[in-house]
Amino acid sequence: MAEIYIPVYEQYTLTIKEAACYFRIGENKLRRLAEENPDAPWLIRNGNRIQIKRRQFEKVIDTLDVI
């Protein structure tokens, strides 16, 4: 079965690595944000794997001047 490619800008959730590239934020900074905000609405945990809800995190980024 062929693998389906979905562009990052259309994905509902992003891995830490994908989000770091998309938002131009370091992977360590994103991991720290996830650890400091475990109940954030933009965060999903699947076991020990972190997923970031792209659109909700975009809204958070839009409200910030410094991250």
Score class of each variant (00 low, 15 high):
F57N: 01
I50F: 00
Q56C: 01
Y5S: 15
K17I: 09
N48V: 05
E27P: 05
K29P: 00
I50C: 06
E10P: 05
T13S: 10
N48W: 02
C21L: 11
K17C: 03
T15N: 08
A40T: 06
P38Y: 07
N28Y: 08
R54K: 11
A19K: 03
N37L: 04
E36K: 15
R32V: 10
Q56K: 10
Y5F: 15
D65G: 11
A19W: 02
E10R: 14
P41W: 01
P38T: 10
K53F: 05
A19I: 08
Q56T: 04
R54E: 03
R55K: 10
E36A: 13
R31M: 14
Y12V: 14
Q11Y: 05
Y12C: 09
V60A: 02
E18C: 07
I25G: 04
P41E: 11
R24E: 14
I44L: 09
E36G: 03
R55C: 01
I50Y: 01
T15K: 11
N46L: 12
E10D: 14
L30W: 02
I61D: 02
E10K: 15
I52L: 08
M1Y: 08
Q11M: 14
Y9V: 09
K59P: 00
V8K: 12
Y9R: 12
N37C: 05
F57T: 00
Y5A: 15
E36C: 09
L64C: 11
N37E: 09
A19N: 04
I4N: 12
I25K: 05
I67E: 06
I61Q: 07
F23M: 09
L14M: 07
A20R: 07
E35S: 15
G26P: 02
D65S: 14
I44P: 00
E58P: 01
